[in-house]
Amino acid sequence: MEDTLNHDEPGRTPDGAPKKRRRPSAAALGELAPLLGLLLISTLFLVLTEGRIFGPINLRSLTNQELITALVAAGAVFVFGAGAFDMSMSGSLCLTAIIGAKVAMATGSIAAMVVACVAVSLLIGIVKGLLAAYVEVPFFIVTIVIGVFLGALGLLAMGKETVLTISALPRIRDMTPINLGSLASVFLGGLVLFNLTSLGKSCKLVGGNERAARQSGIDVRRTKLLAFLVSALTVSIAAIVILLRTKTASALTGGTVGTDIMVALVLGGMPLSGGPRSRIGAALVGAATITVLNSGLAIMGAGPGVIQGFRGITFIAVVFVASLSYRTRLLPR
């Protein structure tokens, strides 16, 4: 009887032809590029700043600085992972913070402020999710419009005030426990949700190929809506942290977050087109990279032009190396 079992001979394909060897070094390098980039930058600035960058004062400030980008980026992983390109994160964060601040000023209550931030952010998330699920327009265009609209709402909410100062909030000298607590809970929750639940897997599949995901039985609309709700939750946490830390809100709150999270995700090794290569860790690694870079250059007294230039070079370098891992194996859509 002919042996019909497919016993692979090392070095040969099932039909006997010699196997082409994969280039493990390029692939592995690409996978590790974000982490290597972070380690390289950290080591470089450890030397250049004579250790000050990781001194006790600056470590606290590093967590402060990394936190907002990391929190919002963690939620954004779900959205970008599902293939939705959201350009309205800054507007969402700004409006959430402004409403939260107004509630805190009116009630003097931290609890009310927290509820307001969560409610406003979730409402924004629902609107975006429904638009992503039901509107057949390139979504990033929709989010650009949403971002402008949210900014306008924020200005309206500010009224004649230029800055909202919440005197009712106590000044928290050391935000480290709150920072670490919120960071840990968001990332642990995100890890479980994204990697171990059907929501996370659905996000990756929808981001990879929406049609195939739909045909596989995944409720694409529901997945997108839930992704935006998760993102909205992390935005609300970020807004609460900003208000606790700065006790202020203005039309410019969270102004650069939208760009920062995209840079963070790319530096963290996640393609903004989403899909199976999406990972929660990208948010943390990327945010840490930006933060160390900014902090190190600032400590060295680099001027704004130098900082921008250095950021650009680092971005290009990490993206190039990271792209080595998927450039040759990118499946056409």
């Binding site: 400030s61 600085q65 600032a298």
Partner: peptide
């Protein structure tokens, strides 16, 4: 360019570290 409270506090912290 500093246009938010977070960036301002971040700058002050960086100056202290420097």
């Amino acid at each position: 360019r500093i246009d938010s409270a977070e960036q301002e506090l971040q700058f002050i912290e960086n100056c202290a570290a420097a």
